[in-house]
Design a protein around this nucleic acid. Sequence first.
DNA 1: GTCGCACGGATTGTTGAACAATGCGGGTCC
DNA 2: GGACCCGCATTGTTCAACAATCCGTGCGAC
Lengths: 230, 230
Amino acid sequence: MRVHDVSDVLHAPYDRGMTEPSTTLADALREQIIAGDFSPGTRLSEAAVAARLDVSRNTLREAFRVLAQHGLVEHIPHRGVSVASPTTADVVDIYRARRLIECGALRGASPLHPSVADMRAALERAEAALEEADWATVGTANMAFHRALIALSDSPRLERSHGHLAAELRLAFLAIDDPESLHRPFVARNRTVLEALVGAGPDAAADELERYLTESERRVLGAYARMGRD
Amino acid sequence: MRVHDVSDVLHAPYDRGMTEPSTTLADALREQIIAGDFSPGTRLSEAAVAARLDVSRNTLREAFRVLAQHGLVEHIPHRGVSVASPTTADVVDIYRARRLIECGALRGASPLHPSVADMRAALERAEAALEEADWATVGTANMAFHRALIALSDSPRLERSHGHLAAELRLAFLAIDDPESLHRPFVARNRTVLEALVGAGPDAAADELERYLTESERRVLGAYARMGRD
DNA sequence: GTCGCACGGATTGTTGAACAATGCGGGTCC
DNA sequence: GGACCCGCATTGTTCAACAATCCGTGCGAC
């Protein structure tokens, strides 16, 4: 069953912590969105969401502005915001940007960079989850692998941009809803990338990564086509 | 004389047009900031800016959130927002990201792409402004050249990221306030890049662009060092 | 003198209510 | 069936208020 309205979703009010709601609020909403609490395309009524999260409309609107900048939410004037639902063109663009940024980061990386350990750790988590057919965890770990890969560049701004791409892409995965075929084949490929990096060197790893991304894009687009998606 | 408080700046209320203030408002503020109406580091008091732009604090805060996401403004909880003032580390990071994105876009580009015409047009504007020692226009045209260069990638997301980098970098230029040395030498280099693209091909152009960016970074960092800047 | 600390003013964070402006759906009329 | 119009729901924005936090100031202790 698909969720098509906020009211269909039950969840606790976001956790009020020590920081300001308006900052944390966007984070909380982001987490819920990429966790799939609201499926892509869901309309987010200001009044409904504000009531459910127990914040005022004004505060919520600030959070929405942030999410809209991240591409996680689409804001159309006088028509409200809805969870972004990446089109085929969006997917193509996301992968184009990923290829450029990830391969570039990898090509300029040192195999001795501390993040290599993070990549390895993420890879091992993915391989462990693979054993148990826990595709959600596999997906998360794959994501972490690529995040660590970008960290090789030591560039906060590239990490930020890549984070946005990853979040948007996750929405596309949610829309497809076939985690196994989207995540399973790519654990082995990630291992190949990592071993190429510490073995054959950054350029070979980047070439391998490029194949990875092209294949991943092909899968997503194929699924979209089968769904008759725009 | 440097501006250090909003109250020092005189300007008309932002132009109320047909679209919603909250969207246009961020744009208007962005324009004013990158035009140098508020010098980097200036504190932007909510009450003062709201009064001057004739909007409510709530609406202004939405705009601030957007600008903060763009990196144009720094928002510290309970301490308000100030115009970003890129540190040396920021400059290094911005150039690192620019090198990766711009060189990557160029390397994957076709010399037959329509944006090549835009690059040429921007270059000619820069060369014309150079004749008249109009450094501000030279800077704007140089910026447009690189924007057109990114457009070679046909990736809206890369264009957006690059736009943010360019805006942040402009703040660094504002802080330096020596437009001639920052813009003059690079017109000829842009021509070299363009001619390499249509002549020797994308890879040669990318190599040239890399030298361009390294040299530009060196100038900015040098100026920062001479200013005793963080 | 200066270090720590309490106090108060100023600013930010958030709320709730209100109203204008816009979009959407339904009904009517031709 | 299609064009038009009207009413309702939602968004965009403002305002006033209050809580929470920060910052400068002055005081006292050492």
